[in-house]
Design a protein around this nucleic acid. Structure first.
Length: 561
RNA sequence: GCCCGCAUAGCUCAGUGGAUAGAGCGUCUGCCUCCGGAGCAGAAGGCCGCAGGUCCGAUUCCUGCUGCGGGCACCA
């Protein structure tokens, strides 16, 4: 029995009391969602609900009074050991070991599907992140969303949504020309233009471009300029893809800004916005009246000189995403783009959509990196560039992803490289992975001793007797595991995958605490008992939850470390 | 000036209205004849930035203030 079942039971109890007229409440006044949570203090039981506090006022009674009515109804349920009223009117519920332990069986049998939900079934969600210019390597500023964006998509999928990871390639405009000119200059040994790109990578890029396209050096003028730009673009984009692949972030769609213009999507976007009546002309320029929907100024789409603005691409891109069938477009942006939030929401409104339903913009604050007690400075246009690949090289994919995801994105993140490199238990990813490896080792040993097959999916459920798991720490661990589906659902709903990471750390702690006092395998010549087997089920369930959780973060769950 | 975010233990940070506010690190003290000690147990350490408001109840929601980070374009 877990929180979901308990919520149903509590709802039934409230309905019952209302029906009998003991609690004066209308059907509509019964809360849609019954909150069942694990109390912070384990002495308060396995699960707690604040339902009595919620309904007391409407029912015209004191919270404790309402609790008194519900208490016997709950206590009578099979599987509930005891119910206590505490504090202002909480109902603290303690489950029987057998009822609570059922969960381990469920987890082991469901395997990798345990924890999945159905809250977002049928939703087509576009998750756009990174969207860097293809004018240089992905750097530290991109890493946060490379990890978090992917984790958000994974968590959404775990709730049944179709989530497309999309990378918008800014391959149009003057930055591309400057980029091409910089590589060209480097290849020819002439000074790089002052407003060009001066990163160290330009030199190696030039070498690679010349090596793969030797014919470029024989070209001249405009032809050569364009050829360098295109060749550099190709190489650089491939490099970004390669590094993201390495980072375990795989995009479903690479959407080129050029293709947006070539495909007629820009015209279609204009038509759509015109039809909705928010386009106007002023001073020779074409504007979108975003101030109709909360933007602080109207935005230019076509400049007086006839050039399209970047904003025009943005609007067309949004309209195009919706036309491709996405119900919701999530944009993951850096803090330096927060000014985009209102205008993009206004774009959605101008396109006739509901900004609260069809578009969502998440802002991630800056990432800083410390090394040797000093901030590692980074600059895309100068040397001393810290790239995503540097980070991977230094700390590995797992540590990098985990430490980037572990914090909510709305506060600035400082990564201490020395700490991440040190590979001690100060780095929580090792703590969690260690727990997984430790369990894997125990199960492995059990299989070698012939206690149970190696693959827990093949275990015979009849061998498991959950009522034997009566130790406090066994119960606490089971309760923690039972909370996993709720954590995942919350992480998806709030777009906060860091909750998964934090939760896994709790599970790891819960396991270590259990392991410390509960012997799993028989010692020496001791005979194999049902308790050994029951604990192995608990181990396997814990391992599965850690595995599933790490999976959602894109972090590996090692069998050995 | 206007907009966004943040402010919680010495440090780095969790905590989507509830009970005695938590973790890691750092400091101090214990625990391996035994399944992985990359672990566990304990101690010390807090006007949850300040002031109001809403609420039975506020670290959490609202307003103002202070401090810190980021942002304002017919740039991309």
């Amino acid at each position: 029995m877990g929180p979901q079942e308990l919520a149903d039971i509590i709802r039934a109890a409230v309905n019952d009391a209302v029906q009998r007229g003991v609690i004066a409440l209308s059907k509509a006044e019964i809360p849609a969602e019954i909150v069942v949570e694990r109390p912070k203090n384990p002495e308060h039981g396995d699960w707690a609900t604040n339902i009595a506090l919620q309904i007391a006022k409407k029912a015209g009674m004191a919270p404790r009074e309402a609790a008194e009515i519900l208490k016997p109804l709950l206590a009578a349920i099979d599987g509930i050991d005891s119910v206590e009223i505490a504090g202002p009117g909480f109902l603290n519920i303690r489950l029987s070991a057998a009822s609570q332990g059922e969960l381990a069986r469920q987890i082991v049998q469901e395997g990798q599907t345990f924890g999945r939900g159905t809250g977002l079934v049928g939703q087509h969600i576009n998750v756009e992140f990174i969207s860097a210019n293809p004018t240089g390597p992905l750097h530290l500023g991109h890493t946060r969303w490379a990890a978090v964006g992917d984790a958000i998509a994974r968590v959404l999928e775990a709730q049944g949504a179709t989530a497309a990871r999309e990378f918008y390639i800014n391959d149009r405009g003057v930055q591309m020309d400057k980029f091409g000119a910089s590589v060209q200059a480097a290849a020819q040994g002439t000074p790089i233009p002052e407003d060009g790109y001066h990163g160290e990578y330009i030199k190696t890029l030039a070498q690679e471009v010349v090596a793969t396209h030797p014919e470029l050096m024989t070209m001249t003028g405009e032809e050569q300029r364009v050829a360098f730009r295109e060749a550099s673009y190709e190489v650089q984009l491939a490099d970004q893809k390669r590094v993201l692949d390495l980072f375990n972030t795989h995009f479903d769609v690479w959407y080129s800004e050029r293709s947006l213009h070539d495909s007629g999507a820009v015209e279609r976007g204009f038509e759509k916005l015109r039809a909705e009546g928010h386009v106007f002309e002023d001073g020779g320029a074409v504007w979108l009246r975003t101030t109709d929907f909360g933007d602080d100024k109207d935005r230019v789409m076509v400049k007086a000189d006839g050039e399209l603005t970047y904003f025009a691409s943005d609007t067309a891109y949004y309209v195009d995403k919706r036309a491709r069938g996405f119900d919701l477009c999530i944009y993951l942006l850096g803090a330096d783009h927060h000014g985009y939030v209102n205008r993009l929401r206004a774009v959605a409104a101008c396109a006739g959509d509901n900004p609260d339903e069809n578009i969502e913009l998440l802002i991630g604050q800056m990432v800083k990196m410390m090394k040797g007690g000093e901030e590692v400075r980074l600059s895309k246009r100068a040397g001393n560039l810290i790239t995503l690949e540097d980070l991977i090289d230094e700390v590995g994919v797992d540590a990098a992803r985990y430490s980037l995801i572990r914090y909510p994105v709305d506060s600035p993140l400082v990564l201490d490289l020395d700490l991440l490199i040190s590979r001690t238990n100060e780095n929580p990813v090792y703590y969690v992975q260690y727990a997984h490896a430790r369990i894997a080792s125990v199960v492995r040993n059990a299989a070698e001793l012939g206690l149970i097959p190696a693959d827990s999916l093949t275990w015979d459920p009849a061998t498991y007797d959950p009522s034997l798991l009566v130790e406090e720490r066994e119960s606490q661990l089971l309760g923690l595991l039972a909370d996993y589906p709720r954590i995942i659902a919350g992480a998806a709903e709030l777009r906060e995958p860091h909750r998964v990471a934090r939760f896994l750390e709790e599970v790891a702690t819960g396991y270590h605490r259990f392991y410390d006092v509960c012997r799993v395998l028989p010692q020496g010549d001791e005979p194999v008992t049902e308790l050994n087997i029951a604990r192995l089920w608990l181990c396997a369930a814990t391992r599965q939850v850690i595995f599933n959780g790490l999976q959602l973060l894109g972090v590996s769950a090692p069998e050995r470390m």
